[in-house]
Each structure stands twice: as C-alpha cells, then as structure tokens.
Nucleic acid binder design. Structure first.
Length: 635
RNA sequence: GCCCAUGUAGCUCAGCGGUAGAGCACUCCCUUGGUAAGGGAGAGGUCACGAGUUCAAUUCUCGUCAUGGGCUCCA
C-alpha cells in the first residue's frame, strides 16, 4: 500500500504505484484537467511521475506560482518546437523562465524578422490547439550527447557534455521536437493558451561577448487571458511614463546626435535638477560634509597612479596639449585625494568628508546608452570620507541613516541592500580585500540590515554596498553606494599623523546616495509620471487670467508668490480659460490659480489642484501657507 | 562594442522610383470667453549624412552617424 498525503492533511491509499495524474484523477475530473505538475515531498515533478512510496503530494495547477513557472517554461519549449517546425535548420540552445515570461536562444543562418515572429506565434498557437502530449524519458549523459550530436544540435551537445557523465538526463518530447530539460513540463501543449511573442534580440552564446551571437526570442505567458491583458496594459502604462517621452512633453531636456550620451537641460528640467541638487547639498552639509571642486581634466600620470588608466583606458575621454596626455575625469576620487594631500593631516582632522557635484565623463559603449538613464556625461552626489579604520563602522552607520532618510524624502521606501565582493581584475592584496569585505559586513550588521552578497561584482579598488530602490511600477534601480577603499589612499599616497606621531594611511569611503543625478531625475520622472511632488515641481503654480482685464493683477499675484520663493508663472494669453486649464493640466502643474473679475476685486485667487479639485478662493497668505505645508510634507 | 529595427515639418505620424502630406504646435486676424481643446487664414521640410544603381532616388543598394529594443559592459 502506498499512502499519499495531500496538502489538506487527508491521506489517500493506493494498491500500487500511481502517477501524479492518477492521484489527481482520483480526486476529481476537474483537478485532473487542471493538473500541470506535482509537488512530491516539496520537489516539482511531471504529472507522469510515478509515486512508488509514501509521499506528501500537492497537485500544481495554474493557480499556483509554480504552475505559472511551469507554463512559462513549457511555452519556451513550445516556441522552440514551433521554430524547429518552421525552420528545421535552426539550432536550439537554452530557454529559461524570466520575470513575466521566458525566452529561447536560437542559432540560425539568417536573422528572424518581425514577420517570422508572427509566423512562429501562429505555429505555436496551432501546436497548442493540437494538444500534443509532452512525454519525458531519462537517458544517460553519453546517450544524450550522441542523440543531440546526431541531430546536428551542437550547442545542446556542448551543454550536455558539461554535465558529469554519471548523471542521468531528462529528455522531453513533444511531437517531432525533443529537448534536454530538468522539467517539469505541462502534460500536453493544450495547457498553453495565453502567450505572446514580444521581440527578437541578439544575445551572446553563454553570455560571453567573445562568443557568437545567437537570436533570442522573448515571450510572455500567463495562466489566464486577463493576466496577459493586464500585463500588456502595464507595459503600455510604463511607456506613458517613459522619461524620454515626458521630457519632450514637459520640455525638460533633450539629447541630440552631436553629443551622444550627454544631456541638454532646458529651464524646467534644470529647475528640477537644482531642486534635487540643492536638497542634497543641504543634507550633506548638515551631515558634516564639506563641498569642494576639482579639475575636469588632469594629467595622464595621475590616472596611471590611481590605476584608472590601466583598468579603464578605453572608457576614458582623453586629450593632449603641448606633448602632455590628459584624461577628462571619469571619477572625482583621485581629485579628492589631491585636496586631502595638501598640507599635513592630523588624526584629529578625521573623518574628513569631501563632497563634490562634479561632472564626470565616461566613454560608455555606444550600445549601452539609454535616454538619461545611462549617459556619458553625468554628475553624482559624490563624496569621499577619509577616516581611520576604527571610524569606518560609525561612518557607514551614519551614511546608511542619511541615505535611507533621503530615499524616504523622495518617496522611495522599498530599498534593497547588496554587497559586491572582490572582482577578478583588482588592485590590492587578498589580505586587504579580506579586511575591506569583512569591514563592510560588520558595518551592515551594525546598521541592522539584511543584504545579499554578489561575488565578483566589486570595484577594482574595493568592495561596495549598493542601495537598490524600487520605483512605483516595481522596477529596481541601483542608486546609492558605499565603497570601502584601502587601495587608492595607498596608490595616491594619502597619509595623516597618528596619535603616536607615526604616519598612517587613511581609509577612503566612496559614497553616493542618489548616484548619477541624470539617472535619478529619469527615475523621478518615471516614478511620478511627470506629476512631481510640490517641493520638486519645476513650475509649482500657474496664474491664469480669464480676460485681459485681470492681466496686471495676475502678474502681481505671481510676483508676490515668487517673492516668497515659489516657482510661479503666468499664462496671460488670449485663450479661453478651459484651454489654458487643459494645457497646464497636461503639464502637471500642481496648482492652477484662476483670476477673474471676482478674484481681482476680492484680492484672492481661485485655486484648482492637479487632481482637478476646486479648492475655492484663497488669499495670497492662505495660499503661501498651503504651499509651505506641501513643502514640509514633501507631498 | 555586438545583433535587430528605426530616422519624413517643432511634436506625433502617413506616404512614395517622377523632387512631399495630416493632426497638434507656431504666426496673424476675429473672438474677452469662469475650470480639460472657440473660429478663420498663413508660414514651415536638402525626407539623418555620404556614396552607388537609374533618364530620374525621400523611396532601391551599400556605408556612416544617431536613436530604440536586447546582449556584453557599467570604476
């Protein structure tokens, strides 16, 4: 007898070994139809899995998160099946599940066109409708290699060869198509209903840019039609928030061919920028940072000394003059060490915190540029803390508090922490790296934070803590960073006089909170979909007159608000009030102040907020109070 | 840097082997209208750049640049 315990605790007994599908059928016909896979003692298996001993069993359906994964994974296989049917010469490689869907990489003699994509999707639909059974068999590794090599599938054979020869390998077959896979898969293609192919893109074989480029087809798949529709709708909504699109609509900035990756800021965009920069400046100043300014261009020898020339030469903009080579600074840190090195420092001066909103330039590969999210010319809220080792943890703790508080002010509350550890290409001894990595772990523990560790992702001079913030539509952005560096102070010969009168190296903490201002503004634009909170809005209020008669009064109202430090414009054009309201509503101005004869006589304004609500008539003083409250609330 | 797609008026986009079109925006005129588009007229383009094919190229081909989507990279 075999006992199968179900998630509700009930136990079913069977005379002999049964499959997951059999158990589902014994419970009900509906469940048998819905079964996509099984969970046997916590392990996902196919519905054809034979249960031959007592187990805990859950039937996985599309209501299950695991069920959705199975659907996506099986849809990737269906994609490969369709491609092999239409283009038998195409070679299959890998097809994993990703967020919201899946992809599959193929090698083919010519690129897939958008028309091919349509044909492939149609073929997938057709194969799904035919409800082709998906069967599984286990073979030895050598058999599997021979099988795929025989088919001329060299990528697949290469993948399998990497598996230990003693291991068994699962092959899944649907119709004419057989693929290597650890599974599980849906029992037949008819379970796959709600999918869509999204795009074709190039992708390197095994993710290595030295390898040939394959063609990746991305797709999305869902359990229900409503889920698919909702996902496509979300994509459309995200597109409406696109910072490039909003920047055009709201006249914030532009990019042009002559300056790839470098931003032309328009008045309103720059106003937004200044709101962020001035805010950061205040926060840094209050936290004991001193702002400095260092040169844009410095001699090659300095960059050789710092190690940047050796590590990043091809990504640095350089220039020369009178037989000297120069580099345009890609980072502020070497400059900051030069300031530190002026004069003799005492341990009493430490920690010394230098901040700079310095414009840096990095010659990023052309293909990686992206709006203002990835640029070649950028400014960070950059600072370097020179301190003693004994001060690192306290500095890290203070930085963490500051960073979290800044994120909160900008409306970001979901922040994930990651710790990037030593990369293969690095400066400094292993001993120093051990010390630096452990130092940051200790700092994180002191902040009572949870973090994820990323081996190999650190900077060449030191490990780093990264702050990833999640935006309004669930995307994650790395903004803040705290990097512990024993290497640059050594290379650039920073030193201070210790208590015992010896000369010692300071430790350097590289840190930023919002990171690249360009990118952070892009994030803010998308986070708020252009409807910036009052304290950040480039134009906080517009005064609109109803007829020419109130033009002078409208100007006076604007002046009085401007005197109080608010960014207020007037729209005195000869247009109907409905027209002006529409236009400035679309510009997402927080407050529209309408003045007609009534308001002019009473010395007030009629206030309309961005939601379209009528806030009634307010005096200028009342309005100023309201504005001040909004600023204090950061709403 | 690599793969694919795209580049037409300020913006969004049609179009096409015979040297260009719409809507919005802009300018002028009429209209002075009370909470999301009043009416009329006008101006505006070396069709990204360079070369080739052709009697003729914005249109076809190739190259360059840029942008977009990915991959790689991101001190």
């Amino acid at each position: 007898m075999i006992s199968v315990r179900l998630p509700d605790g009930s136990i079913r007994q069977f005379e002999q070994a049964v499959t997951v599908a059999d158990v589902a059928a014994s419970i009900g016909a509906g469940l048998a139809r819905a079964a996509l896979a099984g969970r046997v003692d916590g392990v996902l298996v196919d519905t054809s899995y034979l249960i031959s001993k007592d187990v805990d069993l859950g039937i996985v359906t599309d209501k299950d998160q695991d069920g959705l994964e199975v659907i996506r994974h099986s849809t990737a296989h269906l994609l490969a099946y369709a491609v092999k049917t239409l283009y038998p010469e195409a070679q299959v490689t890998i097809g994993p599940v990703i967020e919201n869907g899946f992809y599959y990489d193929f090698a083919y003699k010519r690129p897939f066109t958008p028309e091919d994509l349509q044909a492939i999707e149609q073929k997938m639909q057709q194969l799904a409708k035919q409800d082709v059974p998906v069967t599984q068999r286990v073979v030895s590794r050598d058999e599997a290699v021979a099988f795929f090599a025989g088919l001329g599938e060299k990528y697949k054979a290469e993948l399998i060869e990497a598996i230990p020869s003693a291991d068994d390998i699962k092959l899944y077959t649907e119709g004419e198509f057989t693929d290597l896979c650890r599974g599980p898969h849906v029992p037949s293609t008819g379970k796959l209903k709600h999918f869509k192919l999204m795009k074709v893109a190039g992708a390197y074989w095994r993710g290595d840019s030295n390898n040939e480029m394959l063609q990746r087809i991305y797709g999305t798949a869902w359990a229900k039609k409503e889920d698919l529709d909702a996902y496509l709708f979300r994509l459309e909504e995200a597109e409406k928030r696109d910072h490039r699109r909003l920047a055009k609509q709201m006249d914030l900035f532009h990019l042009q061919d002559e300056a790839p990756g470098m931003v032309f800021w328009h008045p309103k965009g720059w106003s937004l920028w200044q709101n962020v920069e001035q805010y950061m400046r205040k926060r840094l100043s209050a936290a004991g940072y001193k702002e400095i300014r260092t040169p844009q261009i410095m001699d090659r020898t300095l960059w050789e000394q710092s190690g940047h020339w050796q590590n990043y030469r091809e990504n640095m903009f350089t220039t020369d003059s009178e037989k000297r080579d120069y580099a345009i600074k890609p980072m502020n840190c070497p400059g900051h060490v030069q300031v530190f090195n002026q004069g003799l420092r005492s341990y009493r001066d430490l920690p010394l915190r230098y901040a700079e909103f310095g414009a840096c330039h990095r010659n990023e590969p052309s293909g990686s540029l992206h709006g203002i999210m990835r640029v070649r010319g950028f400014v960070q809220d950059d600072a370097h803390i020179f301190c003693m080792e004994s001060q690192v943890i306290e500095e890290a703790r203070a930085f963490n508090l500051l960073a979290m508080s800044v994120y909160k002010d900008f409306g970001f509350t979901d922040v994930a922490i990651k710790l990037s550890l030593r990369p293969p290409k690095r400066a400094g001894s292993d001993e120093v790296w051990d010390k630096a990595e452990e130092g940051l772990r200790e700092a994180l523990r002191a902040c009572d934070l949870e973090w994820e560790e990323l081996p190999g992702e650190g900077a060449f001079y030191g490990p780093k803590i990264e702050y990833h913030i999640k935006d309004a539509i669930g995307r994650s952005w790395q903004c803040g960073t705290l990097q512990l560096d024993f290497v640059l102070p050594e290379r650039l010969k920073a030193e201070f006089v210790a208590e015992d009168n010896s000369r010692q190296r300071p430790v350097m903490l590289h840190r930023a909170i919002v990171g690249s201002l360009e990118r952070f503004l892009g994030i803010l634009i998308e986070q708020h979909a252009g409807s910036f909170p009052f304290w950040l809005a480039p134009v906080q209020a517009m005064v609109l007159n109803i007829t020419d008669r109130q033009g002078e009064y409208a100007t006076e109202v604007a002046h009085r608000l401007q005197e109080q430090g608010f960014s207020v414009d007037t729209d005195l054009r000869n247009e109907k009030i409905t027209y002006k309201i529409r236009e400035h509503s679309m510009q997402r101005v927080p407050y529209l102040l309408v003045v007609g004869d009534k308001e002019m006589e009473a010395g007030v304004v009629a206030v309309r907020n961005r939601k379209g609500e009528d806030l009634g008539q307010l005096s200028i003083d009342e309005l100023v109070n309201r504005f001040k409250t909004d600023i204090a609330d950061r709403s």
